[in-house]
Design a protein around this nucleic acid. Sequence first.
DNA 1: TCCCGGGAGTAGAGCGCTCTCCCGGGACGG
DNA 2: CCGTCCCGGGAGAGCGCTCTACTCCCGGGA
Lengths: 346, 346
Amino acid sequence: MSRRAPTLEDVAREAGVSRATVSRVVNGVRNVDPQIQDVVRRAIARTGYAPNRAARALVTRRAETVALVVCGAGDASDTPQDTFAARVFADPFFGRVVGGVVGFLRPRSLHPVLMFAETADDREEVLTYLRQGRADGALVVSAHADDPLPALLADARLPAVLFARPSRPVPLSYVDLAHRDGGRLAAQHLLARGRTRPATICGPLDVPASQERLAGFRDTLARHGHAFVPVAEGGFTLDSGAAAMSDLLARYPDLDGVFAANDLMAQGACQVLRDRGRRVPEDVAVVGFDDSSVAVTCRPQLTTVRQPVEEMAAAMAAVLDEHVRGARTEPTSVVFDPELVIRDSA
Amino acid sequence: MSRRAPTLEDVAREAGVSRATVSRVVNGVRNVDPQIQDVVRRAIARTGYAPNRAARALVTRRAETVALVVCGAGDASDTPQDTFAARVFADPFFGRVVGGVVGFLRPRSLHPVLMFAETADDREEVLTYLRQGRADGALVVSAHADDPLPALLADARLPAVLFARPSRPVPLSYVDLAHRDGGRLAAQHLLARGRTRPATICGPLDVPASQERLAGFRDTLARHGHAFVPVAEGGFTLDSGAAAMSDLLARYPDLDGVFAANDLMAQGACQVLRDRGRRVPEDVAVVGFDDSSVAVTCRPQLTTVRQPVEEMAAAMAAVLDEHVRGARTEPTSVVFDPELVIRDSA
DNA sequence: TCCCGGGAGTAGAGCGCTCTCCCGGGACGG
DNA sequence: CCGTCCCGGGAGAGCGCTCTACTCCCGGGA
């Protein structure tokens, strides 16, 4: 096949200097005569030299790689057609996370390693991967707030940053959204639209984010005289949103406003409402959450609470970078503010 | 911080054997007394040893990593809100690719590095990444068939496998679909449903896959007496599908069947049809392509030509693995058959 | 004239692993 | 009984890089 790749040694010989001098030029260390720099650079170009990263990593103890870990429930079993990874990306949310992370990493010539962790074995593998020094740290996005991975990472003293605050305290940095404020924005908007019988499709209640969104929504309505608010729990999927909407309609046929805890469920709700002959927003106003791509794809387009996922993901990467470089040692939290995006559904 | 990680040496001392013996146990090489194996394994557990991959990679010249590269147009400029990566994952297609790739890699304890290549610099970086030995090969998914990356990879003799046949021949393996057969299936189904004035929303015509789907559709209709078939070109996005549908309706108001070259465009078409008061499938039957998640999300659910993306992606990974291991040296092609999935839209 | 400081470059010791080569000893055949 | 083979295990040479010494040389001050 192709012969051995050129090494520092080869370049040094070609340029007539020592290995160390070439290394200095490659790594941009000063104390090298500009003329010699030029000679070396030409030699590098001529030989087509690319520094071997394994060798560099061996001595610097840095992989210059981060792991992007998506943790899941591991409840459903995989088939070739329907893998965990595919299910994850069915929610446009993760695409945005990847986009944000890459947005931060790419200018630094870094690239994430994608890992999916459903089972205990998978989680162990993530730990091993980091311990082997194949990645310098992990960005962790969990479907459930009580995922055991964060605690494992913290125990192993491996650098990691979480998306969303874990349900039980863990000494790791995290990036989150002020979910309660998001719920408040939704409530205020429905009230401003003159809705008098609002209801909500909340997310899984074992997820703190769902609880907070619900709490913010309820509290705000309570402050305006709505002591009781109908609630149906969904699972952040289209189908669960549709089911929850059916449930709400059956119990409270006269409702005129719905806040769904994410856009996918809002879309499901819209479909059910339309099937039952309710016009959106005239008969029932619908507010979503996330401002994901389905908010625009959906008909009518969704009024929704925007979560700046890309910025949040980028912040995650930035904080991890600080941890890895040792510029930050204590865990921090970065909390972003939600924003109401008004479209057609409310 | 944490003290030095344990090395082979440490384990060897702990177990009272030599470094080489521990290495043998770790790598599962035979010729080691079972009793000693046990001693070593216990020592590994006690020390919490994890082999340093950089060191191993240095000598084996294997990174045990593959790059998953997504090539894009690089036409639109990125904003923090709307990155290339986010745009890529807006199409559920890529989620399925990732799912398929991971499905193959995970049982082998491998994990893909995600790379996005829009600009010439990005492509150069992919090459450098591979040349540095950070990944053993690349799985390339291009938005456009004339992307220059495959040729660059082939020239550099770097192991790579493509998703879809490139528009100009390149000595690389690829995995593809019998797109022409897919177009045929769509045409046959519309005919079977008694449609007499079929039209099509094709994909970008610089993409061979689009051409083939269109050709298969047209040829089959021609064989049944339809000499002329109205065509509007789309860009595989929801909006472009909607625009193409409007266009077709304006030109051929009496059409009663539409074949869209992917599900996203089919969804856009359905929305426009509904807005114009046409019932789907009663007035206009719609057939999509891909069988992606939107096929099920869409109302009505889409009848569509299934592309087994997960299996195709897994096959890509499998072929790359053979190339990397040296089990295969000549480029091959693996072509999958499409399958009609009948739901509600036609 | 000598010495000393510092910039430019070299020599070489590892980083942690794999793998070839070698050695000792037990089984076996002549 | 000795030579041969094989098998379990050890010693040690790298893999390609970084980085800490150290050397060399030149200029300036005493």
